[in-house]
Simulated scan of single mutants.
Amino acid sequence: MHKWIIWCNLNDEQDALEKIFGDDCVSIRGSTPNHKKVELERRWREEEVPILITKPLCFGFGMNWQHCADMAFVGLSDSFEQLFQAIRRCYRFGQTRPVNVHMITSSREGATAENIKRKEADFQKMVAEMVKYTKEITSESIRSTERDVTEYTAITPIKIPTWLRSEKIAS
């Protein structure tokens, strides 16, 4: 079964998506009781339904969904962190396929989309700088280390137990 996660931000978006996908989806909201959230997520994860519809605030943090490699965002918020974390639910250690992320926005969301792009560029720049400085610090640390060797001279001869000598001789 081909799995999808559809992320939305507004209740109206979630209502419309539920109507479109009907029985092919489970939809989890913040107001969904916890025991029901667990049951609905299990139904999707164990392939009873192919589509999970939810919000980044509900399931965008901490889940490990390597079994899914396709997601769509229907509408965006200004939170790059929510977007990044939601993508990372599938793009995790153990994922064997490329993760496909589709972003569906309206013309009214142009400023929000541009803001997210700017935040992503800032994030990429920050990561590159962190790698650069970490690499320099690590190299410097390695170059400044010294090997500490303690000379050891054995003065007590090794005594092999008789039971070991007997066994060795017998074989």
Score class of each variant (00 low, 15 high):
1 M>C: 09
21 F>W: 06
144 S>W: 06
146 E>A: 13
100 N>K: 15
50 P>F: 03
91 Y>D: 07
90 C>E: 02
16 A>M: 05
11 N>W: 09
171 S>H: 13
54 T>Y: 00
28 I>Y: 01
76 L>T: 04
100 N>I: 13
49 V>S: 01
99 V>Q: 05
30 G>C: 02
130 M>L: 12
33 P>W: 02
44 W>H: 03
73 F>M: 05
134 T>M: 15
105 T>G: 09
75 G>F: 09
64 N>F: 03
68 C>M: 01
81 E>H: 05
43 R>P: 06
132 K>T: 14
10 L>M: 15
47 E>L: 11
144 S>I: 06
56 P>I: 00
24 D>P: 06
28 I>K: 03
147 R>L: 14
45 R>Q: 11
158 I>S: 07
8 C>Q: 06
22 G>F: 03
17 L>D: 02
153 T>F: 11
22 G>W: 01
55 K>P: 03
3 K>A: 12
11 N>Y: 11
83 L>Q: 03
99 V>K: 04
23 D>G: 07
93 F>E: 12
88 R>N: 12
97 R>C: 10
60 G>P: 00
57 L>Y: 13
126 M>P: 08
57 L>G: 14
31 S>Q: 07
27 S>G: 03
41 E>K: 11
145 T>V: 10
110 G>Q: 13
65 W>H: 05
112 T>I: 15
13 E>A: 10
78 D>Q: 13
94 G>H: 04
128 A>N: 08
54 T>H: 04
32 T>M: 02
60 G>L: 03
61 F>T: 12
157 P>T: 06
2 H>N: 15
157 P>A: 07
110 G>K: 14
53 I>S: 01
82 Q>S: 08
139 S>L: 13
156 T>Q: 14
